[in-house]
């Protein structure tokens, strides 16, 4: 029995919920048992968001255990760095090179960790860090909100499932007026060469 546990972290408003819905439906298409759990705290925008997606033959808990995440997908740099304890040794950590400084940083009371610091936190936990210019790519496609789907494009190459399945799921979940944007964002991510 092999489970695939995917943890996502970001900031409210970044589209983590759409991304986790896409992963959930793709898991079903690939004939896995799937569970998903997400916590979006009090804030509509600007708070921490985490989402757990689990694929497997048999999945009981909707939550991933510490040390068991096969993938960590980070929509924002600092939020990604909060989850090293969940990474399984050698797990890819796909990280959007995008910063949203929290209030303490804006007020000068704390320092936003550098890219190197974040990478070393995640590497020390056994993660294989992959930086993706998701927000930049999505912005070039017309809307930075599609950054999450760029990241999914990158992960899709590792998770398997042919592009048709992913695109079908995206079509079923994304409103018509944003469909073209998200299709392109997915393709852009999928086409990226990552180490």
């Amino acid at each position: 029995m092999k489970n695939i546990d995917i943890l996502m972290a970001g900031v409210g408003g970044q589209g983590t919920i759409l991304a986790s819905n896409i992963l959930t439906e793709v898991g079903l298409e690939l004939k896995y048992n799937v569970k998903k759990s997400e916590v979006h705290g009090m804030a509509q925008r600007g708070g921490t968001v985490e989402s757990h997606v689990r694929w497997g033959d048999e999945v009981h808990a909707p939550l991933i255990e510490q040390g068991y995440a096969d993938y960590l997908i980070g929509f924002e740099m600092l939020e990604t760095a909060r989850w090293p304890s969940y990474i399984k040794k050698g797990a890819p950590v796909i990280i959007n090179s995008y910063q949203i400084p929290p209030p303490s940083v804006n007020l000068g009371k704390a320092k936003y960790p550098s890219k190197e610091e974040i990478e070393s936190i995640l590497t020390a936990a056994g993660g294989k860090v992959i930086w993706v210019e998701g927000t930049k790519i999505a912005e070039e496609l017309g809307n930075p909100a599609a950054a999450g789907v760029v990241l999914l494009g990158v992960v899709s190459n590792m998770l398997g499932g042919d592009e048709g399945i992913w695109q079908k799921v995206i079509q079923s979940l994304v409103p018509e007026r944003f469909l073209e944007l998200n299709r392109k964002a997915f393709q852009a991510g999928r086409a990226l060469e990552v180490a």
């Binding site: 600007g46 510490q66 040390g67 600092l78 304890s85 929290p102 704390a110 960790p113």
Partner: peptide
Amino acid sequence: LAEAEAASTSTAELPIRPPMLCP
């Protein structure tokens, strides 16, 4: 052990991100 080891991974120095009013 995995849990105990995981718990020892410190992220305590990272600035927190409390929920806040939207822009």
